[in-house]
Design a protein around this nucleic acid. Structure first.
Length: 442
RNA sequence: GGCCCUAUCGUCUAAUGGUUAGGACACCGGCUUUUCAAGCCGACAAUACGGGUUCGAUUCCCGUUAGGGCUACCA
């Protein structure tokens, strides 16, 4: 059996699309699983729309996901070979230059090349869907080149796949119908027929065609910039249309390579679901070490030490690094600078015992706390005070804990006061509680 | 219109003739809780429809319906 060779043939006419990324991933997984190789081919024959910057972005994005290939080429570089092949089949009579359609373009005579269609039924085997049969007659003698030196997509693809010894063409379902004409071209060229596998399409959240209008973010780089981990993108996208056949859902790229088979590929289209992606991403973020979390999220704060200690909090509360950055500059800004707060919010939970004396009971225990106390230690020392208030007053623990937490954070919503104390340190905590007491004295 | 592909909870999916149709995400409820999260526990929720085949169909066949793709001298 021949060594497996798959291909990743994006056309650099736009940003890296999540659908393109998924097709690339499946080609990569299939080839690597089989110990085969991958060919990257930039389909840049559409001169007007192809741009180097798009090509760069596509390559960079696929590398970011962790994909790699063993050969790189640009379709535009194969022009002489395409012409040679075209002339060859015209000479052989399986294609012809359509003289009656000739026209002048930019002072040059242009004559379209058509394939002589034998007009019969074509059956090919799809590795995912089984045998598929088309009647090729309806295609007629279709155009395979705008001019002898200007082949259209179908011809270029077949020629390039032949020359690169591609064994498996794994692509989107939108190419099923195209397969017939490509097989006809293959036969004219005397090229071997590769195995075909047509992947189900990715649909938007409402199960409609993916489009800019759908509101679904389509560009892989936008996900990267928003703070999604490549591990999560690979994991999520692999499971969109593929399943290992078990309940397992957490896969690294290397694990996917081990497990991937075409039998696990779904036939029907799969709807994109951002919520699920978010949850997959959160799981991968949580698996990062604290150091990696900061580095990979490019997180910054005025106090590196506090930031470091706050990572568990970020892991608990955020699903992307954008959310982590937002939390640091918003709700958690109180970790890095003394918050402003209002008297009203401080006494919001007051009923029974006045807030001021309650806060005062915290001062000595706070002062006696060891340096670098963990949240557990802080809690073990201070919670009894809240319990005591609960036992005696109407306000419950909240009578003490609410103003305490608010004095530390200046926020209606924040982590618990024990965690805050351990993050900002007892001196700073003391200062903030004293400030709150001062406000209550006014 | 023609040709082709597809069809299990809201979503991603498992189960390839025999299961109380399983898991995950979301949603809802409870526990915990000063708040917000997180965590734990639980509930809700599907074989599109109609015919066959079979002792028995999610599973095999046919039809209907619905969705999708192709129908370019774009890729």
């Amino acid at each position: 059996m021949n060594k497996v060779v798959t291909r990743i043939p994006p056309s650099p006419t736009g940003r890296l699309h999540i659908g393109t990324a998924r097709t690339a991933l499946f080609n990569y997984l299939f080839a690597r699983h089989a110990g085969g190789s991958v060919v990257f081919r930039s389909e840049d024959t559409d001169r007007a729309r192809s741009k180097k910057e798009y090509e760069d972005e596509i390559i960079e994005g696929l590398h970011w996901l962790g994909l790699s290939w063993d050969a790189f080429s640009r379709q535009s570089e194969h022009a002489p070979r395409h012409r040679e092949l075209l002339e060859q089949i015209v000479a052989a009579g399986t294609a012809y230059v359509s003289k009656e359609e000739s026209k002048m373009e930019k002072g040059k005579m242009v004559e379209v090349v058509r394939l002589k269609n034998p007009g019969r039924s074509i059956t090919f085997h799809d590795e995912i869907r089984g045998d598929i049969t088309f009647d090729s007659t309806e295609l007629g003698d279709f155009v395979i080149a705008r001019a002898i030196d200007d082949p259209i997509y179908h011809f270029a693809v077949v020629a390039d796949d032949m020359d690169a010894d591609i064994t498996h063409v794994i692509r989107g379902e939108d190419h099923i119908s195209n397969t017939t004409r490509q097989i006809l071209i293959q036969e004219a060229l005397g090229a071997p027929r590769p195995a075909y596998a047509h992947l189900p399409l990715i649909l938007d959240e409402k199960r409609a065609k993916l489009s800019k209008r759908s509101g679904t973010v389509l560009s892989l780089h936008d996900y990267r910039d928003e703070g999604f981990l490549p591990e999560a993108m690979v994991n999520y996208v692999a499971l969109l249309g593929w399943s290992p056949g078990t309940d397992e859902e957490h896969f690294s790229l290397a694990e996917l390579v081990k497990r991937f088979t075409l039998e696990g590929v779904q036939k029907g289209g799969a709807a994109w679901n951002r919520e699920k992606l978010l949850s997959v991403n959160q799981r991968w973020m949580r698996e990062l070490s604290d150091t990696d979390f900061i580095a990979r999220g490019a997180l910054e704060a005025v106090d590196e030490k506090v930031l470091r200690r706050a990572v568990p909090l970020l892991k608990e509360r955020t699903r992307t690094f954008d959310e982590a950055r937002e939390l640091l500059s918003g709700e958690l800004s109180c970790l890095f600078s003394s918050p402003k707060f209002s008297r009203e919010a401080l006494v919001a939970k007051e009923c029974g015992t006045p807030t001021k004396p309650l806060l005062q009971t915290l001062l000595v225990p706070l002062q006696d706390l060891p340096d670098n106390a963990t949240p557990e230690i802080v809690k073990s020392v201070l919670m009894p005070l809240a319990d005591a208030e609960e036992a005696r007053g109407k306000g419950g623990r909240g009578a003490l804990l609410w103003p305490f937490r608010y004095a530390l954070s200046g926020q209606e919503k924040s982590p618990d006061p024990f965690t805050l104390v351990s993050l900002i340190g007892k001196e700073e905590a003391l200062a903030r509680v004293k400030k709150a007491i001062a406000i209550l004295e006014e």
